[in-house]
Design a protein around this nucleic acid. Structure first.
Length: 282
DNA sequence: GCGCAGGTAGAGT
DNA sequence: ACTCTACCTGCG
């Protein structure tokens, strides 16, 4: 168990920001509606083959893991060392829209998630909704991932390795409710398993080169490539434009988003806008 | 029943 | 270089 003070950090907001599809609030007796009001709760997070329970009450976070796992994995995963207040302070004081978005989502962090898992997750995300994306990924893990037991005894499924999916028929994952995205995932698994796409090399690449490389995958377009760059490779300048962002830009940034001003951390601003568009709606 | 949900590939101008 | 459309599925 590791206890830390985490100022302006919110598991709930990270959960609701829709960047991580294997994070869920654990329903415990006695934690009803009140819990969300005080920003308190316990979440279960599965990342690749790892499992974590983490509890937050206000600024106090308790990670239910060893010191080593916290220091060398989860602290990095949650980007706890990064100063997001510094990003927010760079917002144009006259941009009331972005100020409001950042204020609402100030507890968001850009996670450092597994590359392969993000490739699959965002292949599935296209023309889809978040609840179903979660179900699709859970189905894939249950069907093809390894059954694991956490130190605390919890049973869960790790995310399947490329090898485990590469041998499937292209439409096999329709059984996991992926629909037409099945062939995208199977073909991506083949590309990685065959070495055609070297994930370790992609990790070493610049944002632009990584994006270029990811775009070669069947089913990966600009938006999905940007999501992978942002949520797996932690290229904070990546700025995925989906339907929500596109609409927000059309309303609030008719002259275009101020890319110059936010260069280097545009992806953080993207998340504030995305979160705001999804969760501030009246 | 119909449109939409964190888009993309492929065909047609 | 654009614009248009089909595409699985489930929820309002």
């Amino acid at each position: 168990m590791v206890s830390v003070k985490a100022d302006h950090f919110s598991l709930e907001q990270i959960h609701m920001s829709g960047q991580c599809f294997r994070m869920s609030r654990l329903e415990k007796a006695g934690e009803g509606k009140d819990a969300s009001l005080t920003n308190a709760g316990t979440y279960e997070v599965i990342a690749g083959r790892r499992y974590l329970q983490v509890t937050q009450q206000g600024e106090d976070c308790v990670f239910h893991c060893s010191d080593g796992d916290f220091e060398y994995f989860w602290k990095i995963y949650f980007d706890l060392e990064n100063d997001y207040k510094a990003y927010i302070s760079r917002i144009n004081p006259r941009d009331s829209y972005l100020l409001a978005a950042a204020e609402l989502g100030r507890g968001i962090r850009i996670l450092r998630q597994d590359l392969w898992e993000m490739i699959v997750s965002f292949l599935i995300s296209q023309q889809n909704n978040i609840p179903r994306i979660r179900r699709c990924i859970e189905n894939i893990c249950r069907g093809y991932g390894e059954r694991m037991t956490a130190p605390g005894g919890e049973e869960y499924f790790g995310f399947p390795e490329p090898k485990a999916l590469a041998g499937l028929e292209e439409d096999a994952l329709m059984g996991c409710n992926l629909g037409y995205r099945s062939k995208y995932v199977v073909r991506a698994a083949r590309s990685v398993a065959s070495g055609e796409l070297d994930l370790d090399r992609v990790r070493e690449m610049s944002c632009g080169r990584a994006r270029e490389e990811l775009l070669k995958l069947f089913g990966v377009g600009e938006k999905v490539a940007d999501c992978i760059c942002l949520f797996a490779l932690h290229h904070l300048d990546a700025f995925p434009v989906d339907t929500h962002i596109s609409q927000a830009l059309a309303v609030h940034y008719k002259k275009g988003f101020p890319n110059r001003r936010y260069r280097g951390f545009r992806g953080v601003m993207q998340q504030y806008i995305f979160y705001y568009e999804l969760h501030s709606h009246i």
